[in-house]
Design a protein around this nucleic acid. Structure first.
Ligand SMILES: [Zn+2]
Ligand SMILES: [Zn+2]
Ligand SMILES: [Zn+2]
Ligand SMILES: [Zn+2]
Lengths: 138, 138
DNA sequence: CTTGACCCTGTAGTTCCTACAGGGTGCATA
DNA sequence: TATGCACCCTGTAGGAACTACAGGGTCAAG
């Protein structure tokens, strides 16, 4: 029924240092200690850390995880805030996908255009170098 | 013909602090100084900083930018190394797109499944909470 | 001559961990 | 009992790529 920090880590896929870090920043409460000053965790902490990890896996940053945790405490409240948080995060993920997709096109166009040869002829370098105002070496 | 740091920043879309940062980490050489100890830049620095910025905009991390810069110096060399760098980076971008796309599906499925109501019924919270081993509040 | 925009240095903060260094603790084994 | 060894403790620093002060100088205009 009681875990050491290492066991809690194994159970949740979290490194020991990360758990201590979460404690330091107040995301996890300070747990009880054994006589030998080891942290001692129970089911409640396991649940809380699992929650945190799943939210992190979904890409929520820690401050949003914090918000989700405190929202989830009051089960009678309207879930609109939770949903808004998730919607915001989804929008952010979508923005990143758009950005990266544009990047991918640029990069692959660059790669397609390079035909090998010397750096002097490489289209990738050429694309990076500033527009030739007059013909001299960088 | 000579720019202040602010002018160089405006010309390249770079914050002044970022330029000083690049200098500190050796990505830009220490420029000349005016009598009043202001940094003074010329065309060459403008070109180099533009190169850096474009590479950054394409998502290359600074150490790869550094590598690209030093590769671009020797224009007679084979461009295979440049191309390999770009290919690696493209692969990385593609990995991120895959990850984010999976994330997007998960998030939007979650959002679709929530029908409003209280936090107690919210599917988003439910999906984050650990599998109910017995029915108690977190 | 004063105001304001700009510049200088140096340091600390951001995000989310991760990695030591320099110690204790707990359990098995020889 | 001594000795490993795996694990735990605290506290601090690093890493990526900036960003933001604080506490000053400099320069051009009015
Ligand atoms: Zn987000
Ligand atoms: Zn090439
Ligand atoms: Zn990359
Ligand atoms: Zn909901």
């Amino acid at each position: 029924m009681a875990f050491t920090i290492g066991e809690l880590g194994k159970a949740t896929g979290t490194k020991v240092e990360t758990i201590r870090y979460y404690e330091r920043i107040g995301l996890l409460a300070k747990p009880e200690r054994t006589s030998g000053n080891y942290r001692s965790y129970g089911k409640a902490e396991l649940g809380r850390l699992s929650f945190i990890r799943r939210a992190r896996d979904l890409g929520f940053p820690l401050d949003q995880v914090r918000a989700l945790l405190s929202l989830s405490d009051d089960r009678t409240r309207d879930c609109a805030t939770v949903d808004a948080l998730a919607r915001d995060h989804l929008a952010e993920v979508e923005r990143k996908i758009v950005d990266l997709t544009a990047l991918r096109s640029e990069l692959s166009a660059l790669l397609d255009s390079c035909e090998g040869g010397t750096v002097g002829d490489c289209r990738i370098i050429e694309a990076l170098a500033p527009p030739a105002t007059s013909g001299e070496t960088l």
